[in-house]
Amino acid sequence: MYSQGLIGADGGSEETQEFLDAFQARIDAEEKIEPTDPMPEGYRRTLVRQIGQHAHSEVVGMLPEGNWISRAPSLKRKLALLAKVQDEGGHGLYLYSAAETLGVTREQMTEELLDGTAKYSSIFNYPTLSWADMGAVGWLVDGAAIMNQIPLCRCSYGPYARAMIRVCAEESFHQRQGYEIMLTLCKGTPAQKEMAQDALNRLWWPCLMMFGPHDGDSAHSEKSMKWKIKRFSNDELRGKFIAATVRQAEFLGLTIPDPDLKWDDSLNGGKGGYHHGEIDWSEFWRVVKGDGVMNVERVEMRKAAWDDGAWVREAALAHAAKRSAKMAAE
């Protein structure tokens, strides 16, 4: 999904060819780039954009699930959901910290999210309408996120790769708890199973869109691959996600809402893969550009949280200043 962060990224650089070649040689040798290392301006800008978008996605991603904490059907589910949402806040923090090493401040990034300059994953602009959505979000949305994030653990930028290692270690519980919710619903009453199927129907296509446009339409992918920010193309990752998920859906006894989904032995150089139906890219672009069901509400909630917390931040800083002045006087 974080390849969505590359949409519109300007990877242009004005460095000399010699500088760019030396940088590329380090990348090709699988050396990690650290914050104080020389790097092309385009590399830095691309990372700021992608990591910032990734961080925003974690933080905005707390909202659709936070919505269900008070209505979780049991204490066990409530504890799991609370822990998951808390993890996402932490993931946002790891990622903001990684972006900050590139010379952008937390305040700047927050302002860009609130004024709409910075984006977050399109998936969070869909509503979570029933309890089954908590299952489907964990299973599919976190599943798709993990598919994207595992290769990011090998990203050429050190702080991003290290943040992703922590995120991936924590994220696998998210997917498992989601799948377990789906399992419970699918073993329940016909109405519960129907609820699970409905959640899958609504979230399937938006999840496929998380991987971003088709490779041919993904203008900035090539440079990111060359710089090893990205290791696999959008379509490759989408294909892996589908292949992993189809079996899991079969086990649940649910139907993936794509009549054109078909296995083909000849894909992926003989390893096989699925053909899938046409993704509605007009919907994708509509949501990315701000016209999804939840776009306005999500940003309004983040803005309210930021504005309502302003006095706390100010009070904490004032208290710290007062204490250090007092200590200096003693």
Partner: peptide
């Protein structure tokens, strides 16, 4: 293990506990 923002020592330790020692 990482970084965080906090106004003072006490808040830094408390946030570090919440963020970096959940497991």
């Amino acid at each position: 293990v990482g970084s965080l923002h906090a106004a003072d020592e006490a808040l830094a330790l408390s946030a570090a506990r919440d963020v970096y020692t959940r497991r």
